Deep mutational scan, measured.
Amino acid sequence: MASDGVVVEIGKVTGSVGTTVEIPVYFRGVPSKGIANCDFVFRYDPNVLEIIGIDPGDIIVDPNPTKSFDTAIYPDRKIIVFLFAEDSGTGAYAITKDGVFAKIRATVKSSAPGYITFDEVGGFADNDLVEQKVSFIDGGVNVGNATPTKGATPTNTATPTK
C-alpha cells in the first residue's frame, strides 16, 4: 500500500443473489490541510450489481451534504461517478479525517463476483488547492465463495486525467 498520499479503498462485503448490500468507500491518509475537492470514477458490471443509491459517509460534515457531495450512476456506461467540492468557501466542510467517504447500496443480481474497480481520477486537492497523490484499492461483493480481489494492489495516480 502507498505510504504517502490519500488511499481510496472500496470495501469488500459478502452478499447473495437478491440481497441488498452496503459497500463502503474509505479514505485513508487524509492530509493535515484536509480535502477540499476530489472527483473520480469507479467501474462495475450492472449485470452483477444493480447500484440503487449512494449515501455520504461520516467524513462528509456539510450539514447539507447534497451541496458538497454528488454522485451519478450510469449503468449503460458501467460507471459510478463521485464528486466532492467543499461548499462553505472557508474550508469548514472539508474532509479532515480518515473514514467512510461514501456507502454504495447495491442489489446482487448474479452469482458472479461483484467487482467495483477504479477507472479514472480527475483530481484530489487540499484546502490550499494543492494537488494530492492518490491511490485506489478495488473491492466489491463476495457472492458465495467468490472473492472480488482483482486489482487489490493500489493504483498510483500522480496526475489528473480527463
Rank of each mutant, 00 (worst) to 15 (best):
K78R: 12
S111V: 03
S68V: 15
I59M: 15
A85I: 13
A146T: 09
D119W: 02
I137V: 11
I52M: 11
D45P: 11
A158T: 08
D126Y: 01
T117K: 10
Y115W: 14
D87C: 15
I59S: 12
D4G: 04
G29T: 12
T14K: 12
N37K: 01
T71S: 05
D62P: 14
I51G: 04
V141H: 13
V6I: 15
Y74R: 00
A94D: 03
R43C: 04
T153P: 12
D55I: 06
S135T: 08
K109S: 08
D76I: 01
E22P: 12
E9P: 12
K150I: 08
G34R: 05
F84G: 00
G99K: 12
V17N: 15
D98N: 05
G18N: 07
I51Q: 09
I80C: 07
E86K: 01
S88E: 02
V134H: 02
K67Y: 14
F84M: 11
P24R: 05
N64W: 08
V30E: 03
V21I: 07
G140S: 13
T117A: 04
Y93Q: 14
D76C: 01
V13M: 03
E86F: 00
I51C: 05
P148W: 03
T149R: 11
F84V: 01
V25D: 01
P31S: 11
P160M: 07
T19A: 10
G53N: 08
G99W: 09
V130K: 06
A125L: 00
P154H: 08
V130M: 15
D58V: 09
Y93R: 15
E86T: 00
A72G: 02
G57P: 11
A85M: 09
V81H: 00
D126H: 01
D87E: 05
T161E: 15
C38L: 02
E120N: 03
I23M: 12
I95A: 10
D58E: 15
V17P: 08
V41E: 00
P56Q: 07
A72K: 00
G29R: 11
P75G: 05
G140T: 14
V134G: 02
D55F: 14
E120F: 04
V143T: 11
G114T: 09
G89D: 01
P75K: 03
T159V: 11
E50G: 08
D55G: 14
S135C: 08
K97S: 11
